[in-house]
Measured scan of single mutants.
Amino acid sequence: MPVRRGHVAPQNTFLDTIIRKFEGQSRKFIIANARVENCAVIYCNDGFCELCGYSRAEVMQRPCTCDFLHGPRTQRRAAAQIAQALLGAEERKVEIAFYRKDGSCFLCLVDVVPVKNEDGAVIMFILNFEVVMEKDMVGSPAHDTNHRGPPTSWLAPGRAKTFRLKLPALLALTARESSVRSGGAGGAGAPGAVVVDVDLTPAAPSSESLALDEVTAMDNHVAGLGPAEERRALVGPGSPPRSAPGQLPSPRAHSLNPDASGSSCSLARTRSRESCASVRRASSADDIEAMRAGVLPPPPRHASTGAMHPLRSGLLNSTSDSDLVRYRTISKIPQITLNFVDLKGDPFLASPTSDREIIAPKIKERTHNVTEKVTQVLSLGADVLPEYKLQAPRIHRWTILHYSPFKAVWDWLILLLVIYTAVFTPYSAAFLLKETEEGPPATECGYACQPLAVVDLIVDIMFIVDILINFRTTYVNANEEVVSHPGRIAVHYFKGWFLIDMVAAIPFDLLI
C-alpha cells in the first residue's frame, strides 16, 4: 500500500533555474538572501570558489559584500557603492579590487542584480563577478574607477581610450546646418538635424578633445543650467548677453562664444560640459537660429522629431539603469545623424518603425519583477520565466494532490484497515475457520451469522477504491517536481505499489 509523501509542494524551481543557467555559462556568482541580516550568502558556485580561493563552506553565510576579499588596494568608495546597491532595488555595476585567499590582487567587475517577489519586494541578490585585470595590471588604489561605466561593446579594446569628441564640431553647429540641408533625401539625416562627426583615429590627448566618459557625465550638469543662461549661451556672438549692473557675465554663455574659444586653444572642462549641455537642449539648428531671432517656433511634425517616441515608452518600462547606459552608448555611435529632440514631445505622434532597438522591449506582467540581467542570462521568455513566489501546480481535472487534506485522511483510514487485516486475518484463519468446520452448517442466516465476513468484505472494497484513487494521485519525481499527468501517474504506480495493492485487495476469504 503506498505511503508516498512529498510535502515540499507547491515547489518553486526558480532558484534552481537560475543556478542551472548560470552554471551553463561558466559564470562566477553568488546568491544572497536579502531578508536576513547583512544579506548572507546562501549559494556560491564553483567558479566563484576558484576565483577567490575560498571553499564553499568558508563563503556560505558570510555577508555578500565580500568584505573578506578586501585588501589594501580595495577602494572604500567601491565598497560603499556595493553596500548601497544592496540597500536599493536597481541593478548596478561596480569595479573593485579584490584579494584572493593567497593574497593576489585582481580588479573585478561586480554586477549586483536584485530579484523581487510578486509584491515588488527584493528577496534575493545575485552578484556576478568578472575579472577585468590581474594584480600586475591593477593601478594605484588612489585612482577611482567606479565613477565610470563599463566599456562599450562596439569599441575595440585597444581603442576604448582613444575615443574623442571634438569640441569644434559642437561649436560649428550653425555652420554645418547648410551642408545638412543640402544633403536632402540623399543624406542619412532628416531636415533640421545636426550631424556630429566623431574622430576615432588614435591621437595624443589634446586640450581640444573630450573623453567619452566626460560626455556621459554632461547629463548630470544640465539641471544646474538655468533657462535664461541656456538661451544666452545659444544666442551666440551676435547678441551678447546682458548683465545687470554690478553683475558679471555668465561664464556659461561665454563658453560657447566662437570668438572667445578661437582665441585660446584650450577650454576648461567645466565650460566644455556646460556648452555641450546647452546645445543638447535645442532640438535642431533651426531652433538655434530661432533663439537668435527671439522667436522659438513649435517643433515640426516630421520623422526626426518622432524618433524618440518609442524611446520614451522603453525608458518607462525599463527595469534597470543598464538600459540608460545602453541608450547613452548607442546615442554616441560615430558617423550617424543625431536628432536633438526633447523627450517631452507630442504624445499624438505616431511611433516610426526603427531597425535598431535601443531599449529592451516591454516586459510582460509575469516578468515585471525580474531584472534585465536575470532575463538576459536565463534566456527565457515571458511565458517560461515565473515570478519568485509559491505557485500552485497546474493539475488535470479529477486529480488528487498527494499533500491535500483528503489524501491525508484517506491514508490514515487505509492504515487502520491494514492494521485490522494484519490482526484479524490470522485470527480468523486459526480459530474461526476451525469452529466453522466443526459446527453445523448455517446457510440460512447468511452474513448475519458471520459479522467478521462483512467487515472483511468492506475492507476489500476499500482497498479496491484505494487502488483507483492512487491512479489519480500526484507524486514527486526525482527532481522534486509534482507530477499531475494521468499517464505518468499510471506508469509510476504500475512500477511501484500496484502489484502489492492488488494482492492485498483480493478477497481470499470469499474465494475459499
Rank of each mutant, 00 (worst) to 15 (best):
A175H: 05
G294Y: 12
Q61F: 10
A303F: 14
I330E: 08
K362T: 12
F48K: 01
P72A: 09
E372T: 10
V36Q: 05
V377D: 03
K161V: 01
A79H: 13
H221S: 15
S239G: 05
N128A: 15
P245R: 07
Q376M: 03
L86D: 01
G224S: 14
A160M: 11
C39H: 14
A360T: 12
F48Q: 01
K373F: 14
N38W: 01
D287S: 09
A172S: 09
L167N: 15
D197Q: 06
A188V: 07
P298V: 08
S275I: 14
T305D: 07
A40Y: 06
N317A: 10
A285N: 15
M124Q: 03
L296M: 14
S207P: 06
L338T: 15
E37W: 05
D102V: 01
M218T: 04
I336S: 15
V341D: 12
P114L: 01
T152H: 06
A175I: 01
V115E: 06
V384N: 11
P352W: 11
P202E: 10
T353C: 10
Q81P: 01
M218N: 06
A285P: 14
E95I: 04
F98I: 05
Q61V: 03
R27N: 06
I123C: 10
A307H: 13
I288P: 07
K116V: 13
P299G: 07
A188Y: 05
T305C: 07
V195N: 01
G246P: 12
R252P: 05
R271M: 06
L380I: 04
R73K: 12
F129P: 01
F340E: 15
A172M: 01
C66E: 01
S55F: 01
R20K: 07
V196P: 01
S153T: 15
S320M: 15
F29H: 01
I359M: 05
T367R: 12
E177T: 07
G314N: 14
D342A: 04
T65H: 10
D286R: 05
K364E: 12
K166G: 11
H254D: 12
L338E: 12
P10Q: 05
G236E: 13
S140A: 10
R269T: 07
R292N: 14
A190L: 15
F348I: 13
R292H: 14
P352V: 12
I30W: 01
P151M: 10
T74H: 01
G236P: 07
A228F: 09
H7D: 15
L248Y: 04
R356K: 15
E58K: 01
I330S: 07
N12R: 14
A253Q: 08
P251M: 08
V122K: 15
G24T: 15
R164W: 06
I336L: 10
A83L: 12
H309G: 14
Y43C: 01
K116A: 08
N117F: 05
V195F: 03
A78V: 04
F340Q: 15
F163R: 15
T17N: 15
L380P: 01
V222Q: 06
L380M: 07
P237E: 14
E95Y: 05
K364I: 07
S178F: 06
P386R: 01
C49Q: 08
D111W: 05
E365I: 04
G345N: 01
N146I: 13
Y99E: 01
H147V: 11
A79S: 07
L165M: 06
V370M: 14
L343G: 15
M291E: 14
A360G: 04
A277T: 14
A203R: 14
I333E: 14
P298T: 09
T305K: 06
V295P: 09
T329G: 06
K344I: 04
A142E: 14
S209I: 13
P347R: 11
A350P: 11
S264F: 06
C52D: 01
C52K: 01
P251T: 09
P114H: 06
P10Y: 08
A217R: 13
A228H: 12
V194A: 06
N369C: 12
P114S: 01
F14N: 05
L155P: 07
K332L: 01
Q84Y: 03
V295C: 15
R159N: 07
G192E: 06
S313R: 11
G238R: 13
A260G: 12
V196R: 01
L155Y: 06
Q376C: 06
S304M: 15
D46H: 04
V36S: 15
E37K: 07
N38D: 06
T375F: 14
L170F: 11
N257M: 15
L69D: 01
D119L: 10
